[in-house]
């Protein structure tokens, strides 16, 4: 049964690490701009250069 001691410590520290992650996310304002982050993620990281314009106008 002494395994219980280890398990209790393990479970609390895992849950504790989630709590720390939550506090960290609040501290670093990660909930401040939820819409923006969602869009930013979908954008390509290509650095805009002087490439010639190659867009089809939907006319």
């Amino acid at each position: 049964m002494s395994a219980l001691y280890i398990l209790v410590i393990a479970s609390i520290s895992i849950a504790g690490s989630f709590l720390m992650a939550f506090i960290w996310s609040i501290r670093t304002d990660q909930y401040d701009d939820r819409d923006g982050s969602a869009m930013r993620m979908l954008q390509d990281n290509t650095i805009p250069g002087n490439q010639s314009l190659n867009i089809k106008d939907d006319k």
């Binding site: 390509d44 290509t46 805009p48 250069g49 002087n50 490439q51 314009l53 867009i55």
Partner: peptide
């Protein structure tokens, strides 16, 4: 267009 920022329109 001059600054190659036309991705804006895509």
């Amino acid at each position: 267009n001059q600054n190659g920022l036309c991705d804006y329109y895509t």
